[in-house]
């Protein structure tokens, strides 16, 4: 039961890994972005649950003494993650904007199709030979 008590971390791990898997395994660029979003959301949950103190209430200071709680949750991780959420949103916007442009240029958002287009393009320009030990050969049009 000791491990189940930390259920919040289990949730975080599962969400993060699901997102990570999508990022790696899917070839569709939009799905990759979705994976990234899921991955980052996992981190957000992690930070949010980090600040929770057992029995603590929302960290709001009130004037009247009887309404004051003795235990507050730690607000700092929540504040931090607000920043990270903003960064995440910006990243996602950036990624989606890129995908729009990629779609305009390649007519596709499938990574393997784009690679195939590039390879074909490169071979037309350079012929079959040409050495590249890594990375698919890409053209410099």
């Amino acid at each position: 039961m000791k491990y189940l008590a930390l259920y919040n971390y289990w949730i975080v791990v599962i969400i993060m890994m699901a997102g990570f898997y999508i990022m790696i395994a899917r070839h569709n660029l939009v799905k990759k972005i979705i994976g990234l979003g899921l991955f980052q959301t996992g981190i957000f949950y992690f930070y949010v649950s980090l600040g929770k103190v057992d029995g603590g209430t929302a960290p709001i200071f009130v004037e009247s003494l009887e309404a004051q709680a003795t235990v507050y949750s730690n607000p700092l991780p929540h504040v931090l993650i607000l920043t990270a959420i903003v960064v995440g949103v910006a990243t996602m916007a950036m990624g989606l904007a890129l995908i729009v442009r990629i779609y305009e240029k390649y007519d596709s958002i499938e990574e393997d199709e784009i690679k195939a287009i590039e390879r074909q393009h490169w071979q037309e320009n350079n012929g079959e030979f040409g050495i590249s030990l890594t990375a698919p050969p890409t053209a410099s049009s």
Binding site: M23, L36, I43, F46, L50, T91, G95, L98, I99, I102
Partner: peptide, 29 residues
Amino acid sequence: SERRQALMASFRYLMMGSIGASFILIGIG
């Protein structure tokens, strides 16, 4: 993006970079 490969290069960097940054974020947490 006069050279369209720049878009894919940027996207790949975005994916890798975000993973890296997220890892750092987790670590700091």
